[in-house]
C-alpha cells in the first residue's frame, strides 16, 4: 500500500510547463543533482526552500510541453512527494505513473488550499486532508491498473514482480 504523505503546500498556477519545472539549460546536470533544477524556471532557489514530503498544488495542465522525465524527476529528487492539480499534461501524467510518483487530480483542493497549508494525502484513496484548514477533499481515483503500478513503486518494479514474459504473446 502507498504510504501517507504529509507536508506543506506550494501553490502554482495553470499551464506550468516542463520548461519552468526543469529548464532546458539545466538538463545537463547529472541525474543525481537534477533536484537543483526543480521549478527553477519560476524560482531558481525553490529546491532550497522545500522540505522533504512537501506537496505541489497547481492548476490546469500541469507539466505541459516536453516529454522530459527530468521534470517529475527533478521534483522528486528535490523532496516533493506528491502533486495535486486540476489536470496534467498527458506525458507528465504518464511519467509520474512510470516513476510511481503520486499525483492526484482534484479541482476543489486547488481552489481552497492556500500556500504553506499543512496537507496529508492518502494516495490510494485519492483523499487530501487540509490540516491547517481542517478540510478534506476527494480527488479522482485511479483505475486499478494504475493503482497496481503505484503500489509497486513504478512500472519497472511492477513488471519485475510480475515477470516480462506475462506481457509476451
Amino acid at each position: 500500500m502507498l504510504k501517507r504523505i504529509k507536508g506543506k503546500a506550494w501553490k502554482f498556477g495553470d499551464n506550468i510547463n516542463t520548461d519552468l519545472i526543469c529548464p532546458g539549460p539545466l538538463m545537463r546536470l547529472p541525474i543525481d543533482q537534477i533536484g537543483q533544477a526543480a521549478m527553477a524556471g519560476i524560482d531558481p532557489d525553490f529546491h532550497t526552500k522545500i522540505s522533504k514530503g512537501d506537496i505541489i498544488v497547481a492548476g490546469e495542465n500541469f507539466g505541459s510541453g516536453s516529454s522530459r522525465e527530468l521534470a517529475p524527476l527533478a521534483l522528486k529528487k528535490a523532496g516533493i512527494e506528491a502533486i495535486v492539480a486540476k489536470y496534467y499534461a498527458r506525458i507528465f501524467y504518464r511519467n509520474c505513473i512510470a516513476l510511481g510518483f503520486p499525483i492526484i487530480e482534484c479541482e476543489e483542493a486547488i481552489d481552497k488550499i492556500v500556500e504553506r497549508d499543512e496537507l496529508e494525502i492518502n494516495v490510494s484513496m485519492g483523499k487530501i486532508m487540509n490540516i491547517t484548514q481542517n478540510e478534506e477533499y476527494r480527488g479522482t481515483e485511479y483505475p486499478k491498473e494504475f493503482q497496481e503500478i503505484f503500489n509497486a513503486g513504478g512500472i519497472i518494479p511492477w513488471i519485475k514482480k510480475r515477470g516480462i514474459d506475462t506481457l509476451r504473446d
Binding site: 516529454s67 522530459r68 522525465e69 517529475p72 506525458i91 504518464r94 511519467n95 512510470a98 516513476l99 513504478g154 512500472i155 519497472i156 513488471i159 516480462i164 506481457l167 509476451r168
Partner: peptide
Amino acid sequence: GIGSTDCAFSLAT
C-alpha cells in the same frame, strides 16, 4: 510521446 522510464519498459518488452 512518452518519457524515459516508459521507454526502458518498452525497449525490453
